[in-house]
Design a protein around this nucleic acid. Structure first.
Length: 424
RNA sequence: GUGGCUGUGGUGAAGUGGUUAACACGGCGGAUUGUGGCUCCGUUACUCGUGGGUUCGAUCCCCACCAGUCACCCCA
């Protein structure tokens, strides 16, 4: 137990960190181009924020949160997502004073107590974007295009963009009523989950995978038939903007987001080969959220993207850039009496920006050469006893095997020139 | 939270109720008493996820737990 990380967590080791940085840098760069600024909120918040923000009947809140009481008797929760925090920070720091809309992005760990699976961790990482303060569909379109742009820049193929409108507090109750009326005669035939969904949130029945429920739901009244004029116009404007941006999408009347705060636009980008965890990115509009957590009535839209999932997709597709490590110089030194000289040389090289390595465990000359080779050293500098006595040292080019004696003084300059030439 | 499958060294893996748990890669050392990349040799699992049980005896049989994985669920 001491030597095992908690279930659903994992170490990200040097060999994979390069991929993470590549993905994160792409996200940061694209966000910057779109005018989104990075925000870093705390990893934990008052539990109440998530109860109010996400909705206290959602699965995330009901059974997936890491909640504990701190030493000051406060109920604290490790963030299961970041939209509520960002909105809290927006209100608390009065970011609306800095001009509208406020465009923010974040990258960081989230925590959800789920049963782990590939692409579903208890500590996982999300990149996400929030645009707060603008209601028109053009900001929805920007956010969606931004998400697609990142995935495209990363080189992912065969992505599927699904969009829907989940309506607003004006049209949703009507739809809800229509759904109840429709499902009422079938109550006995629905699965247990759906019977409770009937009372709590009949919209979710549309999402059920049970064949029986699916069949019944197939002809249920869909939301698009009930959208109020405002929502309906908003949705068609969004579609026209996406077409203008040449972004392909599919309408999915059954696309429902799991968190309560969503209104109007809902969207998801899927990479089907990932199976059950194919949603790389999901989001939508949340026009009631800012007010819900105690701020002024303010519209907003955003999405979150699962970094582990993006990485899985890239791996599956074979699109991860492979990085080959190398060092500029490996200093070979077997004589104890030359250790200080070797160490000092290494320090000088490193000050010049050369990646320099040395043996740390008392290897033989031959073994040190092997090590230099394994580390992909461009050059080996061999401190031979006889040469050092004459103020010289052997410089070997590891690729051509050419080697010659050079003066100890001035070797730094010599090496630097070589490296500059190679990098050109 | 539910169900299925899996669990042998750093990695990929073979294997059997009973002396020394294959093989490959990797690691370490060596094969000209000053030099790597190829080749060759040696070495590298007080032990087969953990804990119980059955048995004269279990890595191979049973149970529990832990972990991974697939599907459900949920969601990114």
């Amino acid at each position: 137990m001491l030597t095992a990380a908690p279930r659903g967590t994992k170490d990200i080791l040097p060999a994979t960190v390069a991929s993470w940085r590549y993905v994160e840098e792409t996200m940061r760069t694209v966000s910057d181009i779109y005018g989104y600024g990075e925000i870093r909120t705390p990893i934990f918040e008052h539990t109440e924020l998530f109860l109010r923000g996400i909705g206290d009947t959602t699965d995330v809140v009901e059974k997936e949160m890491y909640t504990f009481t701190d030493r000051g008797e406060r109920s604290i929760t490790l963030r299961p997502e970041n939209t509520a925090s960002v909105v809290r920070a927006y209100v608390e720091n009065k970011l609306y004073a800095e001009g509208t809309p406020t465009k923010l992005f974040y990258i960081g760990p989230m925590f959800r107590y789920d049963r782990p699976q590939a692409g579903r961790m208890r500590q996982f990482h999300q990149f996400g974007v929030e645009a707060i303060g603008a209601a028109p569909a053009i900001i929805d379109a920007e956010v969606i295009v931004l998400a697609a742009d990142i995935l495209n820049k990363l080189g992912l193929k065969d992505l599927k963009l699904l969009i829907n409108s989940v309506g607003c507090p004006k049209c949703r109750p009507e739809h809800r009523q229509k759904l109840r009326n429709y499902f009422h005669p079938y109550l006995e035939e629905l699965c247990e989950d759906c019977r409770s969904r009937y009372d709590r949130n009949p919209l979710r029945i549309l999402d059920c995978k049970q064949p029986a429920c699916k069949q019944i739901a197939a002809t249920a009244p869909t939301l698009d038939t009930c959208l109020c004029e405002e929502c309906s116009i908003h949705f068609s404007e969004l579609q026209s903007l996406l077409m203008a941006a040449k972004l392909k999408f599919e309408l999915d009347a059954n696309l429902v987001r799991g968190l309560d705060y969503y209104t109007k636009t809902a969207f998801e980008i899927q990479y089907t080969p990932l199976g059950a965890q194919s949603a790389l990115c999901g989001g939508g509009r949340y026009d009631g959220l800012v007010e819900q957590i105690g701020g002024p009535a303010t519209p907003g839209i955003g999405f979150a993207m699962g970094i582990e999932r993006v990485l899985l997709a890239l791996e599956k597709q074979g699109s991860l850039p492979f990085s080959h490590n190398f060092v500029d110089v490996f200093i070979v030194s077997t004589e104890a009496k030359h250790r200080d000289l070797a160490f000092n040389m290494m320090k000088q090289f490193r000050n010049l920006g050369l990646k320099t390595e040395i043996d740390f465990i008392g290897r033989s000359l031959k073994a040190q050469m092997k090590q230099a080779n394994r580390l992909n050293a461009r050059h080996a500098i061999i401190l031979g006893d006889e040469e050092v006595a004459r103020g010289k040292v052997v410089l070997r080019d590891m690729r051509t095997s050419e080697q010659n004696e050079v003066n100890i003084d001035g070797i730094s300059k010599l090496l630097c020139k070589t490296e500059v030439r190679e990098n050109e």
